[in-house]
Amino acid sequence: MNSIIVDFLEKALVSDYVSSVLVPSGGPDNTFPWTLISDVSALAMAEPVPPVMYVQGAKALASFTQSMTEGKLLAVMRPCEARAAVELSKLEQIDLDNIILLTMDCPGAVPLKEYRRDAGIQPDISIPETIRPLCRQCTEFTSAGDLCLAMHGGLREVLPLTPAGQELLDSLGMKAEPDTSAWIEWASSLKAEREAVSTENRKSLKKAYSGLEGLVEVFSGCISCRSCRTVCPICYCRLCFIDMKDRRCPASAHLENSRSSGAARVMSGTLLFHIGRMAHMSLSCVSCGMCEDACPSDIPVGRLVSMVSAGTTAVFNYSAGSDPEDPLPLNTFRLEELHEYED
């Protein structure tokens, strides 16, 4: 898969249709830093589909594309990363106008901490134990962005998904029109399988941690490092509301809090932070699992946010990262909506 993508990137970069490429490359110590490449020779180090996710691709992309002026950029990323990029474009953090997103049939990613202990582990789409819990239940494992490299159903082909993707293929003289029926069948059967897994997992997660008591329990190990927020592609605010000075609580209020219950946890905003974060970003959550990878306390935070996201997006009939034209629910005013949630 890596060599097909690298060949494609090389063709695109040489053609002058794209002027730069964003792709993970092999770095020291089993790392895969995102690299912005304009010189074809730098593609020698490219590792388009690394076994792990160190930084969410959309986050890497947003770091230099808030305003795009010159030349087209071809970015290779996993489907969840491409969908996060679409959400970030709606949030005006990425200007997608001159960006072409190439995705692939995603094998999933190895949990980061496990990979750091044993860099020999490779993600295997057919062995769920090799990939993260969220990847095991991911139903959007292919066909995101403008182009997708199909690797199943007998294909090894870059397929266009949008006019922009088609235009790139045309300009590279890649005119193949393969039979995609077996690939589509593969995708829908895996999707059905994963849907069953995800329904089951969400059910048991909900059962284990529902209600205030359940949330208190699952987040009790939170050490307030805020890594989940920092690595989340959707949490882009420079200063999070939870860290603002006017949220500070005076010593007397802490003592009062402790008096009223006999004993109170200090670093007190744990639940407020997590629930607030879910309220802010769950509609755009792409279930990439980066938050869970980063959590030093092994809280299943990604699975929780993903579960909440399944609920909130259903209410608004919204699918994060699917259609760049689909407006963000929280930015859309409708006079008549959500009456069923009114008193």
């Binding site: 830093p33 890594s227 920092t230």
Partner: peptide, 9 residues
């Protein structure tokens, strides 16, 4: 610092 994921933890 190659493996730093930028979590700022």
């Amino acid at each position: 610092f190659a493996a730093c994921i930028g979590c700022r933890g």
